[in-house]
């Protein structure tokens, strides 16, 4: 959490651009990563991250600071931006179905990736998870957020987040094993 975050938020609410700039610089990287791993496209991730912080700047007067860092609110905005992106672009990935669609993984393309397990392959596998699983994996393992903060960002209980985390990792491991088995 940013030091003196509450003060910066109050200043930003009053229209102080410098205060908002401090918040932006502190959280831009993690929000960018969050979006990037969900859309897997640098240009799209940049656009959606920009839209996220633009919404935050325009609506910060209505933000109510609670016990969690403002990043929880930024994650909520970013999630909505990604959902809107998939809705408007009708990307051929099932984002609402309960079960994972194995055929969407595209093993034939993955076979062209040689070498040991690397970050790009993991990033690629993450995009085939359900959106909720993606959210939990990124926030928990990439950004090291605690369960309470993730629960607040996802508007779920901590218990539900723990369950999602368990399922997400299990699902990702299964995907990885299938990927290895096909190579």
């Amino acid at each position: 959490m940013l030091e003196n975050e509450k003060k910066y938020i109050e200043d930003a609410k009053a229209g102080n651009q410098e205060a908002f700039g401090i918040i932006y610089n502190h959280y831009i990287a993690q929000i960018y990563r969050f979006v990037l791993f969900k859309v897997s496209g640098k240009q799209i991730a940049q656009d959606l991250t920009h839209e996220t912080f633009l919404s935050a700047w325009q609506n910060i007067k209505n933000y109510k600071h609670k016990e969690f860092p403002i990043s929880s609110w930024l994650y909520q905005i970013a999630r909505n931006k990604v959902i809107d992106y998939y809705r408007t672009n009708k990307k051929n990935i099932s984002i609402d179905t309960e079960e994972f669609d194995e055929s969407s993984l595209g093993f034939e393309e993955q076979k062209n990736l040689d070498g040991p397990m690397n970050l790009e392959k993991i990033k690629s596998l993450i995009t085939y998870l359900k959106p909720e699983y993606q959210d939990v994996i990124i926030m928990r393992y990439v950004e090291d957020l605690d369960h309470g903060e993730i629960a607040h960002a996802m508007k779920k209980s901590e218990g539900a987040v723990r369950l999602l985390q368990h399922r997400a990792i299990k699902n990702l491991k299964e995907l990885y094993e299938k990927y290895r088995g096909n190579n």
Binding site: Q17, F20, G21, Y24, N25, I28, A29, Y32, R33, L36, F37, Q46, T49, H50, F53, L54, W57, L119, I122, K123, I126, I137, I138, Y141, V142, E143
Partner: peptide, 22 residues
């Protein structure tokens, strides 16, 4: 997965984005 934390946005992008937002 934790190694993905090394991913950072480009500096030029962040500066331009912030200026446009403000």
């Amino acid at each position: 997965i934790r190694q993905l934390k090394k991913t950072e946005p480009e500096k030029e992008y962040t500066v331009n984005s912030l200026n446009l937002i403000l």
